[in-house]
Design a protein around this nucleic acid. Structure first.
Length: 240
DNA sequence: GCGACAG
DNA sequence: ATCTTGTCGC
């Protein structure tokens, strides 16, 4: 079994210099390796959240990973990284734009975590291999995709009550995404398995990591961190 | 050809 | 996602 750091560095090298067409082939190949399995939520102790923001004027990607302890909802460790954006935004190829910065964040973590919540879709993707699945495969860890907009499938609307759910199915009529209302009178979020979790476990994980806000806590904290990171950058860099 | 389209 | 202020409503 090779070391995690080695896996991450290898993945970083493989992501370099790919064009969109090659990226699509890469996804088709790796999608066959995604594993959907039950995850024992009762054993869940620590959850990580991964998010990326941008500073458009300087082509910078600002990434952050925050690990929280479920018991207290308190942060155990956080990691950030700022790097140049090297891949365009193409719907369906988000991983090739955000993974480099995210993997660098994971390289600097010292604490362990049980699952990772990712800002984007998992298998609710044209080739069943969204950002959450890709990250999960590289880390060989359970990952859950949490998106705020639809990318793949039929649009459905859950009830207005908290925890109302509606599902999105693929061509084989298999559920690939849960559209969930995490708060009343607020737009629902899209939950899909990334890797090593199934759709039911994914939903359970989201229920246990969501506090009083629409976005699950690990992701909300990671997002806040990337935004603060941007504010902390030299004024000359962010001046429009 | 037309519409859809994570962040 | 980013740019960008105030404002309406639970």
């Amino acid at each position: 079994m090779i070391d995690l750091k080695a896996r991450l560095n290898k993945a970083l090298r493989e992501l370099e210099g790919l064009c969109p067409k090659e990226a699509i082939s890469f996804q088709k190949k790796l999608s066959l390796k995604v594993k959907l399995e039950k995850f024992d939520v009762s054993s869940l102790k620590t959850v990580a959240g991964a998010d990326v923001s941008y500073l458009k004027v300087h082509k910078l990607a600002l990434a952050a990973v925050v690990i929280i302890e479920l018991q207290s909802f308190k942060t155990i460790e956080q990691s950030t990284f700022v790097g140049e954006i090297k891949f365009p935004y193409v719907p369906g190829l988000l991983a090739f734009r955000e993974l480099p910065a995210l993997l660098n964040c994971f390289l600097n973590l010292t604490h362990s975590f049980d699952v990772v919540l990712v800002d984007g879709h998992g298998i609710a993707h044209p080739r069943r291999f969204g950002l959450a699945s890709h990250l999960g495969f590289i880390l060989n860890k359970p990952t859950v995709g949490v998106a705020k907009k639809l990318l793949y499938g039929q649009r459905v609307i859950p009830g207005e009550k908290k925890w109302s759910v509606e599902y999105i199915y693929d061509e084989s009529n298999k559920p690939v995404c849960a559209v969930v209302r995490t708060r009343e009178n607020v737009k629902p979020i899209y939950i899909s398995p990334g890797h090593r979790v199934d759709i039911d476990s994914s939903l359970e994980i989201i229920k246990k990591t969501t506090g009083k806000y629409r976005i699950p806590e690990p992701l909300r904290l990671a997002h806040q961190l990337t935004q603060r990171l941007k504010s902390s950058l030299p004024i000359a860099w962010r001046h429009n």
